[in-house]
Design a protein around this nucleic acid. Sequence first.
DNA 1: GCCAACGTTGGC
DNA 2: GCCAACGTTGGC
Length: 155
Amino acid sequence: MNHWLMKSEPDVFGIDDLKARPKQTEPWDGVRNYQARNFMRDEMKVGDRILFYHSNCKPPGVVGIAEVASKPYPDPTQFDPDSKYFDPKSDPDDPRWILVDVKYVRHLKRPVPLQEIKDHADALEGLQLIKRGNRLSVMPVAAEHFDYIVGMENE
DNA sequence: GCCAACGTTGGC
DNA sequence: GCCAACGTTGGC
């Protein structure tokens, strides 16, 4: 099983929104970064665990756990002219943007803020989230780091 | 609101 | 293929 971290802005779509969805599941649309797409397209498997991260808020941090709930499939918003994610260059016969469905698992007992994660940089060496210049919205997380961050909910 | 980091675009 | 300009992300 692979582990992931996925960012979302709570003002747009937060973990409470995910929990409130029918089947507590949502297509993770709007990703328009090739690296992030490749992770979803090539490496995600149903059941993979996800750290749900709130960005662009105070404080940013990991707020819960989700899981991959579908195989990869084309992001429908790329073909919708009314969508802000519409991509006129994407060929319907060879879709450019791929997503997976994400399903709510649970909230952490408390949000674990980015600052605390940074304070544990020694234990979390190599974690992409705290590397300089990181802007990826979908990134892999080592299994040990995943468990470590979840464990921080008890502190 | 600022700005560093970084991806993308497009002229050449 | 280079690189300057521009746009976006996202923490602060």
